[in-house]
């Protein structure tokens, strides 16, 4: 299967990107048409087109609530989900590269634990009443964690070891362990709010707004530009710091820039939608079978694939399952077994 895909796409990355773009657009429209109220595929198209100024499309025959459902409820959720899927996959690609480890993910450095701790604090202090503050606290928690991890891994006056992948992974694990103990403690003291905390941690795209779409998309675009600029350097860094350095990459600088980029993508994703596992680990990994490890191809393809998969999962939980289950659980339930399968096939690269 991957062999066939390899043959078709190995020499023609652009066509793969175009195909994935097309599939994503179709899935977005399809997803918007599904839900409690069924709206036709082409009606969705008409509703979206009618939003552009100067274009008048006859929407008279529709139920007048349909445009509101599509534009205010479904599309913000769908687009946030798409952007988060892309951001998590991109972040995964970046982290796997700088940590020289194909099994790293956006949460390896404890960014998710930091965000969760921030969110729990906000919920516990009842700042959650103004619901904006939970994402803000989560984002601040993620940033502080990242700074602390960078600070920890810069130890020692010997310049080679600082920011090395081993140092980063160790610092991340330590910080994440402390923070998860902190989260457990907060849950323990939270009394009746514990349900809110647990629900937040499991992740959800319910009741997302255009604001969420804008913020995530902004981070995604900046992250994409930065990682494409440094894509070839990332190729070299993934071979080891000493090699990259001797091939003309300023490893300290590039690692730091990419570390911050990857972490910001993960931070904004977690802040917007809670902790969604396995996307950032699995998508880059699977896409690497098709595109190969060259980040210049991997980055765009992994982003689109991640967006497709997460939107697919969210559409399943929102529109197909009789009861909505948290997206974080769904991705882990699907992703975990897939990972086991890849692992058992012995093709972990």
């Amino acid at each position: 299967m991957t062999g066939i895909l390899n043959v078709i796409f190995a020499r023609n990355r652009t066509s793969l990107v175009v195909l994935l773009f097309f599939l994503l657009a179709v899935l977005i429209l399809l997803s918007a048409s599904m839900g409690y109220i069924e709206i036709g595929f082409f009606d969705i198209f008409k509703i979206i087109v009618s939003q552009f100024p100067g274009i008048s499309v006859g929407l008279d025959y529709m139920n007048e609530t349909w445009p509101a459902i599509v534009m205010d409820v479904r599309l913000p959720r769908i687009l946030t989900c798409t952007a988060v899927g892309a951001a998590l996959s991109l972040s995964g690609v970046v982290f796997q590269g700088i940590l020289l480890n194909p099994l790293a993910d956006p949460y390896t450095l404890g960014v998710s634990a930091g965000a969760a701790f921030g969110a729990c604090t906000a919920i516990l202090l009842n700042l959650g009443a103004a619901f904006v503050s939970v994402p803000l606290f989560a984002f601040a928690g993620a940033c502080l964690t990242l700074l602390f991890v960078i600070f920890l891994s810069c130890t020692g006056n010997n310049s080679t070891a600082s920011l090395s992948s081993n140092n980063l992974i160790l610092s991340g694990i330590i910080v994440a362990a402390i923070l998860s103990a902190g989260i457990s403690f907060l849950k323990y003291t939270a009394d009746e709010q514990v349900a809110i905390i647990i629900f937040w941690l499991m992740g959800s795209f319910a009741s997302k707004t255009w604001m969420d779409v804008m913020v995530t998309a902004l981070f995604l675009v900046v992250g994409l530009i930065v990682s494409l600029v440094f894509a070839r350097d990332l190729n070299l860094i993934s071979l080891g710091e000493r090699s990259a350095s001797s091939l003309g990459v300023d490893t300290k600088k590039v690692t730091l820039i990419l570390l911050i980029t990857g972490s910001m993508l993960a931070a904004v994703s977690v802040s917007v939608s809670g902790i969604i596992g396995f996307v950032g680990l699995l998508v880059p990994h699977m896409v690497r079978f098709i595109t190969g490890p060259d980040n210049r191809a991997l980055i765009p393809v992994a982003m689109l694939t991640g967006a497709l998969l997460l939107l697919g999962a969210d559409t399943i939980t929102r529109a197909i399952l009789p009861h909505e289950i948290p997206i974080g659980i769904l991705t882990a339930l699907i992703g975990g077994p897939v990972f086991c399968w890849i692992f058992k096939r012995g093709s972990i690269r």
Partner: peptide
């Protein structure tokens, strides 16, 4: 260099 390990499947 001494360390010629490569973790990613580049050709």
């Amino acid at each position: 260099s001494q360390n010629y390990n490569i973790n990613f499947p580049f050709t």
